[in-house]
Design a protein around this nucleic acid. Structure first.
Length: 724
DNA sequence: AGCACGCCGACT
DNA sequence: GTCGGCGTGCTC
């Protein structure tokens, strides 16, 4: 009898699997997806069993043995394991790191996590209280309380005056058990009736339940996409299946969660970065064990284990936060599509401003297009008005036209939103005497002035230093603060207006609860001016905002970077959508130095879809994605030439450029030095996925062969968001 | 990634 | 004389 061998994924940056002996003492059947503790080098790590190994990679006598099996049943179910293996391959990332990242943090280490503490309890089915001894008065009383209330939470038990001990006693006697995450499952509140468009979209989706089908739900702001999701989910649940709903990082607000919970009480759980490890584990288990039917989560929730998955929804599918921006650079949206295909269930990608990728997929007939053009309720979509600010005097970055509009809006008792996507006081600090400029010591970048904190901060690394009192070169103390920032805008506007000015950006909302407090204040409805970055553009609805002013988006809209134009337009429309959501009509003023620019004209006068078509046509001409397949290999090192040399070596090991295959680089990154390291990239472009994949495979082999060490780091980005 | 081994500088 | 710097090599 040959010894049993298993192939294990180890969490280390090696694109390899490791074989281990499976000792008889473990006894159990080998199941893929089990977590195991294994010796690795001089330490012990947690790996995941991929499969029984056929023949060992090294001779079997040199293999080490699995120390321990950590799971009762596989932590990665067969469909998730195969999804993970596919994704590791697709993104050319080490399989051990991928599989580890798919698991909740609490399961990544060997110590069996303390079972997440129960919060709610209920009576077990068919309990006979009379079996309790008559002297157990407290226990009997507690059973009565359960009969009356159904489910009792920790707090409720405290309020009713029951002790922890009584409860524990009943749990031990198997009279009481942990209840599902939330209160009794029951009928939630009814949603509003659907209009024709919504109804059509809903029917299309529900007709597809039980089969793989991709939908692009293209619905303008306020058109009621979420209502379509909720109805679709309702149908899916009625068929006894579960749903996965992905939202952008910033979109998973308590409001969103509450909306789902009100509709489906007791059936929703969430997975996002705000949860403690134990809560995350608990919610993950609730989904896996089928206690919850809806998982609402951000990027990594795409790996939630839903054994009865029947529908996937990706809201705001164009949002960049679905793409992980370091390490394993996966796109949760794209993995979700793959997952739906594996599972044989429909997936709905929703957006008011769909990504060009998805629109292209729609054009190709891969995605079924569903459009919602009407706004639910009376309000019409706010038109964008261009304000030509060439040679116009600006006061605090605001043109006379915008100031007039602000005055009028406030006078009418409404609220104003001013969008400026640059936080801090001023992006540049310069000495008025000698021209010295404050630069980051570690990056090719200027330091941003943070006025109230009296600090200079680099927005590209962690660097922070105090504001110098005098110029380090000429010792003068007269400073120029160049350019606008949200902090400066807030301060200056506060001097000018008597109404409250509220700033919402990463700095003003970093303290826990401060975001909620700001949002609550705005929702009071008093006239005020909101100043903010893109944080303001997403998630929150402010019904009293009737004027949106966009101070400066020229840099993004007219950028040479081909993706920046797309994402700036999406952002602009998202911001514009904040205006006039309730019954009041809204107004959007966009300040620009290029009012005649054709792209802007198209966007403003002919709409996003037309704008997107124009951009797509451009990309087709230039052979850019989605008309080609793209990857970037990035390297960073202590010197620029080390990074470039490494990439040059890779380049020379790959196929010669041809008709269907191009390489660009190695090129230094636009901001070559960042956090003290020099960065360069090699761009790969192919006409087919297969071609790209093959070359990436070779690149990985060559790169791993190089003894790079600590001095040089490299990474692969498949389907990158930006090319550098 | 970790972790050990290994060969050169300033310290009780 | 040793403590400790991080270069380099290896992990079933």
């Amino acid at each position: 009898m040959p010894p049993l061998l298993v192939s294990v994924a180890i969490p280390c940056p090696l694109r390899r699997r490791f074989d281990y002996l499976w000792p008889d003492s473990l006894g159990r059947v080998i199941e893929a997806g089990l977590r195991v503790r294994v010796p690795f080098g001089r330490r012990e790590v947690v790996g995941v069993v991929i499969a029984p190994a056929e023949g060992a990679a090294v001779d079997a006598s040199r293999l080490k043995a699995v120390s321990e099996v950590l799971d009762e049943r596989p932590s990665l179910s067969p469909p998730l394991l195969s999804l993970g293996l596919w994704a590791a391959d697709y993104y050319h990332h080490p399989v051990g790191e991928c599989l580890q990242q798919m698991l909740p943090v609490a399961l990544r280490k060997a110590a069996t996590p303390a079972r997440a503490k129960a919060e709610r309890w209920q009576l077990c089915a068919g309990v006979d209280v009379s079996t309790l001894p008559p002297q157990a008065k407290q226990q009997r009383a507690l059973c009565e309380a359960f009969r009356e209330h159904g489910v009792l939470s920790r707090e409720a038990l405290g309020e009713l005056g029951f002790s922890r001990a009584t409860l524990r006693e009943l749990e031990k006697k198997a009279l009481v058990e942990e209840a599902a995450t939330t209160a009794a499952v029951g009928g939630g509140v009814q949603g509003p009736p659907l209009n024709d468009e919504q109804q059509q979209a809903l029917v299309a989706i529900t007709d597809a339940l039980g089969q793989f089908r991709r939908f692009l739900l293209d619905g303008i702001t306020g058109s009621g996409k979420t209502e379509v999701y909720l109805r679709g989910i309702e149908q899916c649940l009625q068929q006894g299946r579960q749903c996965l709903v992905l939202v952008p990082e910033i979109g998973l607000t308590p409001q969103t969660l509450r909306r789902f919970e009100r509709r489906f009480p007791g059936r929703v759980t969430s997975l996002h970065s705000g949860l403690a490890d134990s809560e995350r584990l608990r919610n993950w288990q609730a989904a896996r064990d089928g206690h919850c039917d809806i998982v609402l989560g951000t990027r990594s929730a795409v790996f939630a284990d839903l054994p009865r998955l029947g529908l996937i929804i990706v809201d705001e599918e164009h949002d960049a936060s679905y793409k992980q921006q370091d390490g394993w650079r996966y796109s949760a949206r794209d993995i979700a599509v793959k997952r739906a295909a594996d599972q044989g269930c429909p997936i709905v990608l929703g957006s008011a401003t769909p990504s060009l990728d998805s629109l292209h997929n729609g054009d190709q007939g891969r995605y079924h297009l569903l459009r919602l053009r009407q706004r639910a309720g009376e309000a019409s979509e706010a038109a964008i008005r261009l304000v030509d600010i060439r040679q116009q005097p600006l006061q605090d970055g605001l043109s006379a036209a915008l100031l007039t509009a602000v005055d009028a809006t406030l006078a009418a008792g409404n609220q104003v939103l001013l969008f400026l996507n640059r936080r801090g006081f001023a992006p540049v600090l310069q000495c008025h005497h000698c021209g010295w400029i404050a630069e980051c010591a570690a990056c090719d970048a200027r330091m941003t002035v943070h006025y109230k904190r009296r600090q200079l901060r680099c927005h590209h690394c962690e660097a922070v230093r105090g504001m110098p009192r005098t110029c380090p070169d000429c010792d003068n103390a007269e400073w120029l603060y160049e350019g606008p920032g949200t902090e400066r805008l807030e301060m200056n506007l506060q001097k000018r207006f008597r109404e409250r000015v509220l700033r919402i950006d990463r700095d003003s909302t970093s303290a826990k609860g401060s975001m909620a407090a700001l949002v609550a204040e705005v929702r009071q409805g008093e006239p005020c001016i909101l100043v903010g970055t893109q944080m303001l553009a997403k998630g929150h609805h402010f019904p009293k905002v009737t004027l949106v002013g966009v101070l400066d988006m020229d840099a993004g809209l007219f950028s040479a970077d081909y993706r920046a134009t797309e994402s700036s337009a999406q952002l602009l429309l998202q911001v514009a959508g904040r205006a006039g959501r309730a019954e009041q009509a809204g107004e959007v003023l966009l300040q620009t130095h290029c009012p005649q620019h054709p792209a802007l004209q198209t966007l403003v006068h002919r709409g996003y879809r037309q704008f997107a078509s124009t951009l797509l046509a451009e990309r087709r001409l230039l052979g850019l994605p989605p008309f080609s397949y793209c990857a970037v290999i990035r390297a960073d090192a202590v010197t620029l030439s080390e990074a470039e040399d490494f990439l040059a070596t890779l380049r020379s090991a790959l196929a010669e450029p041809a008709n269907d295959w191009h390489m660009v680089g190695p090129l230094p990154a636009p901001m070559a030095r960042r956090a003290g390291r020099f960065r360069a990239s090699l761009i790969l472009q192919a006409d087919t996925r297969g071609r790209l994949h093959g070359q990436l495979q070779r690149a990985c082999a060559v790169a791993e062969g190089q003894r790079a060490g600590q001095r040089l780091r490299w990474s692969i980005d498949v389907d990158p968001i930006d090319l550098f």
